[in-house]
Every structure is written in C-alpha cells, then in structure tokens.
Amino acid sequence: MATTTDSSNTSATTTTENATSKTIKIQSNDGETHEIDQGVVEQSSTIKTLSDLMDLGDVPIPLPNVKGSILTPIVEFCNYHKNDPKPEPLDDDDDDDPNKDIYEPKRSDDICEWDQNFIKRFTVQEGTLFDIIMATVGCKTIANMVRGKASSEVREMFNISYDPPGEGLNAPNAIESQAGTVPTTQDTSATGPSPQPDPMN
C-alpha cells in the first residue's frame, strides 16, 4: 500500500531556512512516496538528473531500486545535511587551510554525533548498512570497521566465504605463495625483514 510521508517532519531544525519552495515527489519500489525540496534534490545526482530530465508535475519520480524502508532514512539524512557547506573540490584554489594536504588520506574520525546516531539504526547483518552506504557516513563507518584488521577478521566480520578451494586468492596456500622471499639490501648494517604471509594477520 502506498504511503506518503512528509519528510519535513524529520528534518533537522537548523536545516530548513535555505530550502527553496520548489518540491518534487519520489517513490520507492514498494510505493512509498516522499515530497522533497530542492535542498534534498541537490544531494542526489540520480534524483537531480531525473528531475532535470522529467517534468512529471505532481507525479512522483519512480526509484525502482530503492525500498521504502531505505528511502525514508536517506531522505531524512539528506534533509539534515542539505545546508551543509559543499565539499571543496580537489583543486580548489580557495583552500585556506595551509596545513591540510589535499592529497592526504581522508579522515574518517570526523563523523558528527547526528550521523553516528543515524548509522546506529542500520545493521550489517540485514544488509541495510550497505543499502545506505552511498552516504559518506556509511563509507567512513565501514572503513573504521576494517582498518587494521586481518583478512581473516574481515571475512569473519562480514561473513564472507572463501573462494572455491584451490581457485580463490584467499586460500591459505595462495596467500603464502604470494608472500615472496626475504628482501635484500646492500647495507650490511640493515637487512630486509623476514617474510610474512598476510602481514596483517
């Protein structure tokens, strides 16, 4: 049964003042409809492209790959973040933080409190975390989960099975055979490390 949700009810109080009055409707694959404003549209390249291409008036834009249970929190997330400052492009000439190297690894320890609470509502085991992973906070959270973990721990964490025996690159024999040999250096005071298969293990 189709339901209509007024997404403005879920938006953060601080994020509504810049929204424009133009709204469009989007519909999940199970018929759930949301009315979203331009601030939300701007955050989704898919919806933005569709809304630019299609002028359906009051007819909702169909999103056949998105379930209603996922669309609702995504709209909520976009509503909260719609007035966030736009991320600086890689070659932004106006970058004024001289201590920031634009090519250094991105930080993932800066997930704001709202996002942290938001992500807690989704679980890996039922797949919902992966459904919303297009949001930056999801990528950061996954990165935090696997950072520094051994391959066996990652496999265990996400219940990933081995590739077929004898064929997969994660078979123990395959790993050992790829570990290589002891490196050599010319400096007698310093030789290379001992071979270590899968050094994170």
Binding site: K149, A150, S151, V154, R155, Y162, G168, L169, M200
Partner: peptide, 8 residues
C-alpha cells in the same frame, strides 16, 4: 595486506 586477501 588485508582486504585484497579477503576474496577475489
């Protein structure tokens, strides 16, 4: 050293 050994 880790993820690429998880699976193909």
């Amino acid at each position: 050293l880790s993820l690429q050994y998880v699976c193909r």
